[in-house]
Design a binder for these strands. Structure first.
Lengths: 185, 185
DNA sequence: GTCTATATCAAGATAGAC
DNA sequence: GTCTATCTTGATATAGAC
């Protein structure tokens, strides 16, 4: 039996998946502790509060997306269309292969509208997302057009994730990907 | 001083605006009672539980949208493009002129994904929404195309509402309306 | 129909033993 | 680092007086 059951990184990953599935307010510290195989009391050894934890979860999501997804937009060794496809496929894996849809969109609608705490991180994530798409679109379109196409794509994805959740099918999101990719044809 | 301070309809309207702004889980019965000018105890005279109340709120939203917005799609005295414009303007008033965005989308992401209770109503609302758009698109496009355009429009609206909320500007939603309307040009 | 008072429970959070 | 025990608060909900 090890002295240490878990660590911050592991907890953040577990918390991410619980928050994504159940939402912020509908997840209790007790839920999180259980999901991590800890007692509630032990949980506070790692995070001072639910708010602090969610803040770190969102920061982790931000780092991961920047590092593993949005960075693809700058891989100029790939043709623009291939870059777009690669990035969308990666994004799809992040958004599709897990229960609960998109933590960024979920949290935006649940918390950000009335609460300032997480707003900056959420905005920054969407800004990076938009910017990554814009970079690729600019290989084919002028800046203004690229910017609008990028914004449109992100909004379409979020709408599609919502529908995919509600109707329990990936089809809406897949279609949204195809539509975005077709703009690079 | 009147014996009766309020009534079910009034409470539903107030609850709608509180739920839209603060979300379902983040709204307490106490919040709702206060917003209605009632004591918590009095509130239960009208609704047995928060869940029942939210159910009725969503049903009311559904009725209102059917009656006041989606019905416009069938006003064949108007030219298709004018019908579309009229419907979108009305929808814009419903979605824009109030704090908290779209209660249908908010509730879908917050509650419907993990909870079956409100899912049927939310689905029915989105189905009617999609269908209203489809009816108008079919004046110009074949059925399959109309269906896809309608789905796309709804998803785009929801994405745009999310952005409008986060960035505190109506522009995203306005742009989405323009894009949809332009498909009827 | 509205009020005050209260029961019950779960949530966030802390203290201190091991 | 983890546990149990506990504090405090706020939430849902009910009872009964007016």
């Amino acid at each position: 039996m090890p002295l240490t059951k878990t660590n911050k990184e592991e907890i953040i990953q577990t918390a991410l998946s619980v928050f994504r599935k159940n939402g912020y307010y509908n997840t209790s510290m007790s839920d999180l502790a259980t999901a991590c195989g800890l007692q509630k009391g032990s949980f506070y050894h790692y995070f001072a509060s639910k708010e602090v934890l969610m803040g770190e979860v969102l920061k982790t999501v931000q780092s991961y997306l920047d590092y593993a997804v949005f960075s693809i937009a700058k891989q100029t060794d790939l043709a623009p269309r291939d870059r777009m496809e690669k990035m969308l496929l990666k994004l799809g894996k992040v958004l599709l292969s897990q229960e609960g849809g998109c933590i960024v969109g979920n949290t935006t609608l649940e918390v950000a509208a009335q609460n300032v705490i997480f707003k900056d991180t959420l905005k920054a994530i969407f800004d990076s997302w938009k910017n990554a798409l814009k970079i690729i679109f600019m290989e084919k379109y002028p800046e203004g057009t690229s910017n609008r196409l990028a914004e449109q794509s992100v909004m379409e994805f979020e709408g599609a994730v919502m529908f995919s959740q509600l109707y329990q099918t990936d089809q809406y999101l897949k279609d949204a990907f195809v539509r975005t990719l077709s703009k690079m044809k």
